[in-house]
Design a protein around this nucleic acid. Structure first.
Lengths: 302, 302
DNA sequence: CGTCCTATTTGTCCAGGACAAAACGTCAAG
DNA sequence: CTTGACGTTTTGTCCTGGACAAATAGGACG
């Protein structure tokens, strides 16, 4: 067999499915059943890995593994585009503009995309740029990925280029000592940065002091960072990919570990499905930021 | 017991030690032995997690787990600062300047650090800035972390701020169609971005067309990205944290999957320990980039 | 149509065993 | 004193097969 083969750890990296899950699926559903190498270890073919990636994507759309893994190949492919391509996005007035930007990424035209974004930024100003361009565009990219219209590398390119535009805009803002001091980051297993940058942009415009700590900060380090920076607020981002199970537990633990005077803001698509929690403010939309900021200022002006 | 507790998955996230390793250490070395919760599942105390983090750090310095886990607490702490703090860095002429920038991070003075970096960038130009400031500073930050002088959140802050400076400088470079087309990224489990940005800066200055795809690109997506962007070169970064075992296997697989006409450049501290591989060019130092670029141009000018 | 309850699905955890690759130490030769 | 070959120990990853709780679907009932 000349097909290159993946061991179970490589499949975990390629698909994001844990080794435990891969073995369990094999035991329970009879797929994937990999070859074994000389040492009796699993060795997956490229075709199996590709199919697993498809299954994973369909699961993110809401399908259940038990059904998917029992299906023959053709039926699986027929499921691929779930979302009616014109419906969800019709709510936005300037959809055609967004689709244009999307098409530039799809055409792999980095320069063109950067230019288009810079132009919109200059035209609308940072606040509207974030609210009306970056936020909906990021949602569209997520949808396109779920529908199979975007590959991982296209999503990565979009993310990387957009981060640059936002960071550039942020650097142009005037510095200075502001309040409150907001620590921006995410917990381990949450690598998405764009949401944090959007929040940083809006908060900076409103005169808050943002301390960007990147993504994937372990809980104990987050607590120490909070002390060291004398932060007033900790803002965390949870994307829809973040395992729902962990959110509640992590936030509870964090709330317990942080001083009561420190406010926790939790935002991102992942928070839509999470239950509200005492001592943690849930911000499901960027539009909720200004009022949260006002609340803090009112409570601390006395 | 009022101490908040971590389940085994949380410990994996906090420490970076896999569940398998945690169970194996418990079985073999008798540490850590966690409590059990109502369902018989492991529940680690904060003290155990802190100690595991210390052990992990000492292992990254070259100590062996068998010894470390047998030691009493005090002895472990005595090991902490291994590196003579003044020796390794004495090789650089302007060490004091670097230490100053480091001190700004240590003092959590983001504004001051950004200013210092911007100033050096303006003074030296992008090329010398990368070679004489960013590269050695990043190494120093890595060393400081190994010595316990830097916390994770301080390293994250350094990384985040420095990324901004570099990206800003990159955005200021003139665009245009250049050759070769270089795809920049890293494989899954390698989240470090700074090395890639340094490479991008130097290559862009030399007139190459850089396609930044961020970090952690699955192998199969990398192959597809390469086709889609008609890349001439794929440049990969491996930090010293990247599991050595994977490097050879992944590069071999990638080499097989990519067309022969596509050159692979592999760089970063992780490549210092890796064996050379047919069809993959190893670049252990930024200074090797220009000649690699020249080689490509000579080979493709005919 | 909404709410409660039950059955099924599904992911994560556990124990304990096996083994190969890496690291170490030893010894001999240059 | 350094270098290289070789046996031993250490160490991480993989394996099997079992258990269980949380999430979800499906159905009954108000």
């Amino acid at each position: 067999m000349n097909t290159p083969c993946f061991n179970i750890a490589a499949v975990e990296r390629e698909t994001g499915l844990s080794k435990d899950v891969l073995r369990m699926w094999e035991r329970r559903y009879g797929f994937p059943v990999p070859e074994r190498d000389g040492h009796g270890e699993r060795s997956y073919s490229i075709a199996q890995v590709e199919r697993l990636r498809l299954v994973k994507r369909l699961m993110d759309q809401g399908h259940r593994p038990g059904k998917l893994l029992a299906m023959p190949e053709e039926e699986l492919l027929a499921l691929a585009p779930r979302r009616p391509s014109s419906e969800g996005s019709a709510a936005f007035p300037d959809t055609s503009d967004l689709e244009e930007a999307l098409a530039l990424i799809k055409r792999h035209d980095s320069q063109g995309f950067l230019q288009a974004m810079q132009q919109r930024l200059a035209r609308d100003g940072l606040m509207h740029f974030v609210q009306d361009t970056v936020a909906p565009l990021t949602r569209r990219v997520g949808d396109a990925w779920e529908d199979g219209d975007f590959a991982v590398f296209e999503e990565h390119l979009y993310t990387e280029l957009t981060k640059r535009v936002l960071r550039q805009a942020l650097a142009a803002l005037p510095p200075g000592r502001r309040t409150p001091r907001v620590l921006l980051t995410s917990l381990p297993d949450e690598p998405h940065m764009l949401g944090l940058l959007m929040v940083e942009a809006l908060l900076s415009l409103e005169g808050a002091e943002c301390i960007p700590l990147g993504t994937e900060m372990p809980l104990l380090d987050l607590v120490r960072a909070c002390e060291a920076h004398r932060a007033d607020v900790v803002a965390l981002s949870f994307s829809s990919v973040f395992p729902l199970r962990q959110i509640g537990e992590a936030l509870r633990q964090l709330r317990q570990a942080l001083p009561a005077g420190v406010v926790i803001w939790a935002g991102g698509a992942g928070m839509l499905r999470a239950q509200p929690l005492e001592g943690v403010q849930t911000l499901t939309d960027l539009a909720m930021l200004p009022s949260a900021l006002n609340d803090w200022r009112l409570a601390h002006s006395a």
